[in-house]
Simulated assay, not measured.
Amino acid sequence: MRHLLILGLLFLIGTDSDASDLSSQELLPSDPIPSYTMWMGGAKGRHAYDKAVTWLAMEKSRVKYGPYSLHTIEHRPGIERARIEAARADRFQVHISPNDEVMEESAGSLIRIKESVIKGILGYRRLIIRKADADKFKQIDSLSKLQTLSVGQGVRWPDVAVLRANNISVVQTHSIDSLFAMLNKKRFDAISLGINEAEGTLETVIAQYPDLIIEPNIVLFFPMSVYFYVNTQHPELAERLTYGIRKAKKDGSFDSLFALHFYNEIATINQSNIKFFTLKNDSMSSLDASQTPLLIQQH
């Protein structure tokens, strides 16, 4: 139902008729419609919003830049090298990601658009745990107790450096499928995922691992920014997305999309039962991010 509401919202706000946006860059009838592919490489729970915010930016720039075609390719989170090689081969033209070390390695292949697209929500983390450990997690009421746990993460995920800098033990693996299997086998105590990822991602594996749950009382926070990245072979797309996302922020449609899509997640983390832990993040993934948890009203 929420996705239908989002589509309805985007239908209402997506097409502009402001004649002042008309420019010499409009396509002539004989010009081909540009076609772009978006790399969907994050956890499954992120995909709906990533698609929606990209579509919003493209629609907000339609009058100025003309029609377009946008497709997606989904790639299960795994060996990050695949993302770098795909960018260099121009197999995708746009991607949404934190400003992590993998994206820095791709600097010669990708342009970072310096407009945050998700208001730091990826830095609010829920823990996926085994049901049998629920009582153990209820006892965690301080950072020192949190530091007695071990957390599973994907290889080179930006969380790895953050958790280790906060003296939390990390176990890494190359695929998200392996993470759930390893948690189920008690190789570590929890998996940390963004509040925009956890529920949707757990839903994809719950039939296989029915004894895993989202821990209901703990939320971690650390500063994290997320951006559009565009293949360097398509500077026109970088220009278009920059224009579109700035226009959406100016007219309020970006805020409307964010609030509608993440209403439940924001309400959940503001419940009175939540124990909130702020972690320091001095890594590159905190670039331009708010150092305070702006989505929290009760802490």
Rank of each mutant, 00 (worst) to 15 (best):
S23Q: 05
S23N: 09
L27I: 08
L27F: 07
L27V: 05
P29A: 03
D31C: 04
P32A: 00
P32L: 08
I33D: 06
I33E: 05
P34Y: 02
P34Q: 05
S35E: 10
S35D: 09
S35F: 06
Y36W: 07
T37F: 06
T37L: 02
W39S: 13
G41S: 10
G41D: 00
G42S: 09
A43W: 01
G45R: 03
G45I: 05
R46T: 15
H47A: 12
H47F: 12
D50V: 09
D50M: 11
K51S: 09
V53L: 01
V53D: 07
V53I: 10
T54S: 00
W55C: 12
L56Y: 00
L56R: 00
M58C: 02
M58T: 02
E59V: 08
E59I: 03
S61I: 03
R62K: 11
K64A: 00
G66W: 08
G66N: 09
P67S: 02
P67Q: 00
S69I: 15
L70A: 02
L70P: 00
L70M: 01
L70V: 03
L70E: 02
I73K: 03
E74N: 08
H75A: 14
R76G: 13
R76M: 15
G78K: 08
I79K: 13
I79P: 12
E80I: 11
E80R: 15
R81K: 14
A82C: 10
A82T: 11
R83Y: 09
R83A: 14
I84H: 02
E85Q: 13
A89G: 05
A89Q: 06
D90R: 09
D90F: 07
R91S: 13
R91D: 11
Q93H: 08
